[in-house]
Simulated scan of single mutants.
Amino acid sequence: MKRVLVIDDDRTVRMLLKVILKKAGYDVVECANGKTSLKKAESFKPDLILLDLMLPDINGLQLLETFTSKENLKDVPIIVLTGSTDEENKLTALRSGAVDFITKPFLSEEVLLRVRTQLRIHSLIHSLQEAVEKLQDDVAAAAKIQKALVPVSTPQGFRDRVNWIYEPSYNVGGDIFDFIKLNDEKELIYLADVAGHGVKAAMLSVIFHRFVEDYVENIKNQGEKLELSKLIRALEDNFKFDKFDLFITTVAVVIDRKNMRIEIGNAGHPSPFFMKKKDRKTFFVNDPVESMLGLGLVEGKTKVLEINRGDRIYLFTDGVIEVVNSSGTQFGLENLKKNLEKNIWSKLEESVKDLFNEVKTYKNGEHFEDDVTIIGIEFTG
């Protein structure tokens, strides 16, 4: 039963409103002045208040402001009762937080219509607030799960230098990556980006992470060697767009320390940046770049590059190059290339950090709309 508090110094008006509302099934409590109404409101905990603007001991507008300033009463809808000539008071009341007004003299149908309408609106707002809070809890939980899967340190036995920065957007995003030791001579690094934000994108990135983990573990248990092209085709077969309704891009690198080479596969992801330290040659590995996963277009093509001690490769998501400054211009590949080239002799950690800082400065320190992930790998030979 909804509770209504009636505050009016006119006993006839109070009785009339009480009869109208009780007959409609409401629990009604009445007050004749402002002094007792505040205590009554705090103990009765009304769902709605009918407040006369002309009270003997306090101005009704002042009482209205008191109600709306109280933490435990500020969300209670207040309908003011006012004389037909109080037009300015009506407007002032609405500006001060009242949700509606009833003009005296009134009809019982009007009272019930306005009360029911405001209680329904208040109920809808409350339901919406609960839904938003639940969604925020879900998003926070999804972000926590996703973040737990992002490496916090280089895995034990991983022999090449690796450094990274992962900066989630203000929305939960879909960047996920991992470093997996295949054997004493080979290591796998992958970076994936699920398009979109929210719980759905975050959970799909978690599923992606688990799939790669299980795939590699099964290969090891069967005593087989990982073939990068087969892994990419398996991802293509298992992450169909029509199943998840989200696009996924990924780039994966297998480091072969014994033969001093790397194998790269790319399904719709921004091309990695490869840096030959000895002769200071730098280039984007644009071949191969296949379609994003799940459209039936990925064949599992890979490319092999020779490496030497000190060479580096940088993986990154499109959140880096698509950052937009105040003038609407994207950071882009050329700015990324220039930044990495100027840090060719810097330590790997410093080069990754400097790139991230430049991207953040480009964004004027504002929150990123998309996840920003940068991974630097230096081959130790």
Rank of each mutant, 00 (worst) to 15 (best):
E306I: 02
V199K: 04
N364L: 08
K200N: 14
K39W: 05
P155I: 07
L94C: 08
P77K: 01
E71D: 13
K200D: 15
D193K: 08
L188E: 09
H209E: 14
E167S: 15
L5F: 07
D175M: 02
L119I: 03
M1H: 05
D193L: 10
K40R: 09
I121P: 00
G157C: 05
F284K: 05
K74M: 13
A41N: 09
G381S: 13
Y314G: 10
F273I: 10
Y166G: 01
K104D: 08
K200V: 15
N163A: 13
R11V: 15
A142H: 04
V115H: 02
A98K: 03
V206Q: 06
D318I: 08
P272W: 03
E349A: 11
A98M: 06
F247N: 10
I189N: 00
G173W: 02
D256Y: 07
I78K: 01
T282G: 14
V372N: 06
I219R: 09
Q330A: 14
G328D: 08
E87Y: 12
A267C: 12
V29S: 12
Q129D: 15
T329Q: 13
A41D: 09
T249K: 02
A32P: 00
K277H: 11
K2Q: 15
D100Q: 07
R309S: 15
P288L: 05
A201R: 00
K23I: 01
L48Q: 01
E322Y: 04
G328S: 08
I125P: 00
A143W: 00
V152Y: 04
L112K: 01
A140H: 07
G173Y: 05
D193R: 08
L235R: 12
A141D: 06
V172F: 05
S127T: 11
D242M: 09
K147R: 15
P270H: 12
V162W: 00
K342L: 12
Q222A: 12
N238L: 01
D138A: 10
R120L: 10
Q118L: 01
G365T: 12
K338V: 13
